[in-house]
Structure formats: C-alpha cells, structure tokens
C-alpha cells in the first residue's frame, strides 16, 4: 500500500509534466488518500501542493487556493520554513489570478517576511515585485514605488538583468 502511494505520486507528476492535468488530479487524489491512511503528513503536504499546481492549469483558481492553504497548514505543522514561504508565494499569485489583491498582498507579505528570515534574496526580490504589482492594481502608488525600488535594488544585487 505504501508503494502504491509513492507510485500514484510519481504517476501524478508524470501526467503533470505531460500537461494532462485531469489525470494529474486523479493520481494525486489517490496519493493523498493513501498518505492520510498512513498518517504521512509530509506526503500529504506534497499531494496538496501538487494538486494546487494542477488546479492552476485547469483554471480552477479558487480550488487551487484551498489546496495551497492545506499545504501551508501542513508546512507550519512540519516546521518547514522554505515550504511555508513557497505556499505563501503560491497563494499570493493565486489570489492575484482571482483579482483579490488585498489577500494577494497579505500572502506576499508573509512570503517576504520568511524570505528575509531565510536570507533568500531571490525570494525577497520576487515578493517585492509581486507586492509592487498588487499595490499598483489597488492604486496605492506610494507603496508600489517603495516595493519597485526594493525590487530594483535586489535585482541589481543578484545580477538579474531582466
């Protein structure tokens, strides 16, 4: 049964890379079920993240957000800061797709705080980029300029010409 769980996970990833997102969801749902049977929180966390990603490409952004929220809860439970940051970044982008810029800002700020904690300058730059855009969408031009300047500073530091 444990091997079946891993196989469903691998199968889901293969379907995902092939661009078959319906089959991706089917496989990762099975993977999730087996992870829950075993109380394997790390596998459960991976399945929620993979499901969230698949729902993004199925255009079901609200469903994707719910899966990313479970990913975030489990990342916190497992005390995995890097995964927590990644889940916040995914949620920020998903709420941008949903045009809910206040929630997007909330999650991008959470991502920014963890990126700083982890001294992840690339992550910090991306958070500032996203925050600048979300504030622009809301007409908060002062805040947008603040984050755009931070993004520029970090991009220069990391040598990101684009």
């Amino acid at each position: 049964r444990a091997a079946q769980g891993r196989t469903y996970g691998n199968l889901g990833n293969a379907y995902y890379l092939l661009g078959n997102f319906q089959k991706t969801v089917g496989a990762h749902e099975q993977r999730l079920l087996i992870a829950k049977e075993f109380g394997d929180r790390a596998a459960e966390r991976r399945a929620y993240c993979n499901l969230g990603n698949a729902y993004i490409f199925l255009g079901q952004f609200g469903v994707a957000a719910e899966h990313y929220k479970r990913t975030l809860q489990l990342a916190r439970l497992l005390k995995d800061k890097a995964v927590e940051a990644q889940a916040c970044y995914s949620l920020g982008n998903t709420y941008t797709l949903l045009r809910d810029y206040e929630r997007a800002i909330d999650y991008h700020l959470k991502h920014l705080i963890i990126a700083r904690e982890l001294k992840d300058r690339v992550g910090e730059g991306r958070a500032c980029w996203s925050l600048g855009n979300a504030h622009t969408a809301l007409g908060n031009h002062q805040d947008a300029v603040h984050f755009a300047e931070k993004h520029l500073e970090i991009s220069r530091e990391t040598g990101d010409k684009s």
Partner: peptide, 26 residues
Amino acid sequence: PMRMHSLQVDSVQRWMEDLRHMTEVE
C-alpha cells in the same frame, strides 16, 4: 489567462512558467 496591468501579467506569468515544471517528488 488574465487581462490586467501588463506588469502584473509579468510577475504572475513568470511564476506560472516556473510552476509548469515544478513537481513535489516522492
């Protein structure tokens, strides 16, 4: 997938391009 400010499309599209190749490996 979106019609909004061009800068926004940039940061979200960049994320989606990366996401397309990202899987949580067993």
